[in-house]
Amino acid sequence: MKALAARLSRPWAWSFLGAVLVFVLAVSFTGGAGAGGMITTALALAVFTIVVGLGQMIVITLGPGNVDLSLPANIGLASAVSMTVMNGSDSLVGIGLLAALGCGLAIGVANYLLIRALGIPPIVATLSSSFVVQSIDIAYGRGLQIKPPDGFADFVSLQIGGIPVCAILAMLLSAGFGIALRRTIYGRSLMAVGQNPRAAQFAGLALERTRLITYGLCGMLGGLDGALLAGYFRGANVDLGNEYLLSSIAVVVIGGTSVAGGKPSVPGIWGASLFLILLLTMLNTFGVSAGVRLVATGLVIVAVIAIAGNRGLVNPSPK
């Protein structure tokens, strides 16, 4: 009982609990039918939210005022770039992925430069860059649906024993992130900058380098997601990433990452992504309309943050 209590005191525990609860509700409604399929689909879809959720998580961890609003545009452009480079040929998949990562990295670095060199607040900087990237994407993609190579598309949808391979890869990625956050100088610096930038400075940490790496990494994750989404939905599309802005921020918050910065929670991203997707699944199972689905999701987000409290995201606490 004490062990259970200890585990529940971790911030991410509640999101997993919520996911389980919602799953149980959904399954009880169908009388057990399709439970396995539900889990498989949930895992498959969760991957996309998790990948950008990790990126948004580290940006938010940088401290109040930091958020990346350019993720949807990033995803859209990366999907077009990667599919164009892959050009329907399986042998070019590797290069295509690299192109997507490079595209995302460029956007991330551009965001950082806007913030640092031009002194624009992160919200507006990433907002502006999202406008520009969106235009680049529209012009580049010309609205054409560029199809992924068959092998790539099949791989993205591949399952082994009911578990999507991409979910396993996402778990590896998350594990890597977890290690990096806890056991590298970058990770330690990130948490320090987020918790107390002045103290971080006095402790001799490299603030600007940490910020640059963070925005760059977030951009790369957006690029990766763009390529994966194009593979899964079998076509690049400028609107591919639209719903991921809100969900990337939502999974960070619901997953227990501190909104004031400095305390990321990788397991929480998983718990919250599964929770949100299973919530949608449950509502679908109940047969509710799209409108009710949206309202319920929104109310859940508001309720979670109202209970959790804690100012942060827009304005730093007054000094």
Binding site: L246, R293, G298, I301, A306
Partner: peptide, 20 residues
């Protein structure tokens, strides 16, 4: 509360209500 998160949640709510 951080307004960015609260209004983010409300954006879902208003959108859903609009659809309804």
């Amino acid at each position: 509360l951080p307004s960015i998160v609260v209004t983010l949640g409300m954006s879902f709510v208003w959108q859903g209500l609009a659809v309804l």
